[in-house]
Amino acid sequence: MSESIIQMKEVNKWFGDFQVLKDINLEVKEKQKIVVCGPSGSGKSTLIRCINRLEEHQKGQIIVDGNELSEKTKDIEKIRAEVGMVFQQFNLFPHLSILDNCTLAPIWVKKTPKKQAEEFAMKQLEQVQIADQAAKFPGQLSGGQQQRAALARALCMEPKIMLFDEPTSALDPEMIKEVLDAMVSLAKGGMTMIVVTHEMGFAKEVADEVVFMDEGMIVERAKTNDFFANPKNERTKLFLSQIL
């Protein structure tokens, strides 16, 4: 068994008086693919946003690749550079072309020479099959293309871990497949992934384990087959019966 690359111990988080995360314990090993599901407002997004410290947790311990995340963490940027993230709303930079979106961080954060960064970015764009759109601006692309560009942008930093925050929720149904295909091929390449999604087909295909969250707690965590075949918790059963 390899070392856990992400460890969350007794993590608690409040937004004001409202507790979003309650005693979260989660370990993710290298190359593991985890799907997080649950009803809306259950804290899934907050959970993965805590992993690259876009949200700060107030209690407990989060260790990513051997570094603990806290107020004292000096170079949080370094850890973030190793953790890629894809957002529901794509969040491409609208003032930059797709290629510039992909090379901005490698050039200025990792200090990669421009030419090398562009070559690598083109390779990533080819992987997600939008190399022909490289010179265009995000506003000129369809939703599915934008999301794949966002995926390529994250991959250009050569992250060790990829986080997906409902990557297909803002897409038209016919565009969901092209994004999921790109994610499946990424998973097959051996990336460590945590995916918040409602796409249960995707979960069945690539996930090693599924985590079910409700009201800020991890209600159930199981191997993918077990999770769908015989869920143990009542709430999980209810949830599955509603979305399957």
Binding site: N52, E77, E82, F87, F90, N91, F93, A150, R153, A154
Partner: peptide
């Protein structure tokens, strides 16, 4: 939108890099 800050941070950009390359160019425009 807040997403622009999120995206820039998630790519490992520091405060000033984020402002100079992502936020200010859009805001000034």
């Amino acid at each position: 939108p807040r997403g622009q800050y999120d995206a820039a941070k998630s790519l490992g950009m520091s405060y000033w890099k984020m402002q100079i390359f992502v936020i200010l160019p859009q805001a000034l425009k």
